[in-house]
Structures are given as C-alpha cells and as structure tokens.
C-alpha cells in the first residue's frame, strides 16, 4: 500500500456527526473524537475504511495521518480492508463455547462457504475473526449482527437471522 495522492472530502453528514463528538471534548482534545469519527466514516463506506478516508479524518481532526492509522488498526470494530455488507460476530469466549459456540461458527462457515475473518462471495456476510465476550453470557451462545445481539442461538435461528440480511 502506498501513500494516497487523492484527497477526498468527508460527507456533510459525517462532518456533522464528528462535530457533535468534538463538542463533547475540550477544544484542545479534538483527537478524542477520532474513534467516533472513524466509526461514522466506516458506517457510510459499507463497513470499512480506506487510506483516503482515514487521511480525510486526520485532516478534519488536524491529526498526523499515522495517529489515525494507529487507532484504525488497533480496534477490532474498525476494518481497514473491504468486507461484506453485514458484520457477524459469534462470541467464542468461555460461556458461549461451553454452550456450543464452536458448532455455530462451523455451521455458518459451511453454509456460507467462508472461514473466520472472511466475507461471503455474495458480499452479504462478513464473519469477524475471534470475537471475545460481548457480555451476554446469560443468553449463550450469542452473536452480534450489525450491532444487534441475538441470543440462545441454534443453527436454525442463525439461518433465520442471516438469511434475512440484505
């Protein structure tokens, strides 16, 4: 990957969102809004970030570009490569594991022809790599689809949810 020459502008909506976040922090702490800014930008860009978009965020928040790359590559909810439209995370931490999370993962992998960390060929489903505890142990096994929790999963229930995705 090399330095992007194209510079792009953030959309009016994203700028408005970032401004709202910036307003929550002291004026000299604009960088505090970087995480929220990246989330907004990713949301508008089909769920992933590009170098040009990260550069635009850096420009908007007056940060060194590398400072934005650091944040974007650190957090697992931020994607720096193109992924499918819907993000699916199956918790595989201990409670879910004891209640059959591994079978759920295997079921999704088989049914949609992908592995953990991959996107389905139809561009619908992105199965996130190794999701740790999402604090819903009482409903184990569970998964999160586009920020929404689904608990007490069975293969049938998973199919119902995933098949309904656009």
């Amino acid at each position: 990957m090399s330095e992007s020459n194209e510079s792009i502008e953030l959309s009016a909506h994203v700028r408005e969102q970032i401004d709202a976040w910036v307003a929550k922090y002291p004026p000299e702490q604009k960088r505090s809004a970087v995480l929220s800014a990246l989330r907004e930008v990713q949301h508008e860009n089909d769920g992933y970030l590009t170098v040009a978009l990260m550069d635009a965020v850096a420009g908007y928040l007056e940060l060194p570009k590398i400072a934005v790359y650091e944040v974007a590559t650190f957090y697992s909810m931020l994607e720096t490569q193109p992924v499918a439209r819907n993000s699916v995370s199956v918790c595989t931490n201990i409670s879910c594991m004891l209640r059959g999370a591994d079978d759920i993962v295997e079921h999704i992998e088989k049914k949609h022809g992908l592995k953990l960390g991959e996107s389905s060929a139809d561009g619908r489903i992105y199965l996130k790599k190794e999701e740790e505890c999402l604090a819903a142990c009482c409903g184990a096994p569970m998964m999160m689809v586009n920020h929404k929790y689904y608990e007490n999963l069975t293969p049938e229930k998973v199919d119902e949810v995933l098949d309904a995705l656009e």
């Binding site: 990957m1 060194p64 570009k65 790359y69 590559t73 650190f74 957090y75």
Partner: peptide, 15 residues
C-alpha cells in the same frame, strides 16, 4: 507509529 495490536503490533508508516 505503532499500528495493529498485541502480537500484530508493528512500527512503521502504515502506508
């Protein structure tokens, strides 16, 4: 900068 996390952390320019 330091990009990535944990075992995958790397020092570099990213691009």
């Amino acid at each position: 900068g330091a990009t990535g996390r944990g075992e995958h952390m790397e020092i570099g320019t990213y691009v």
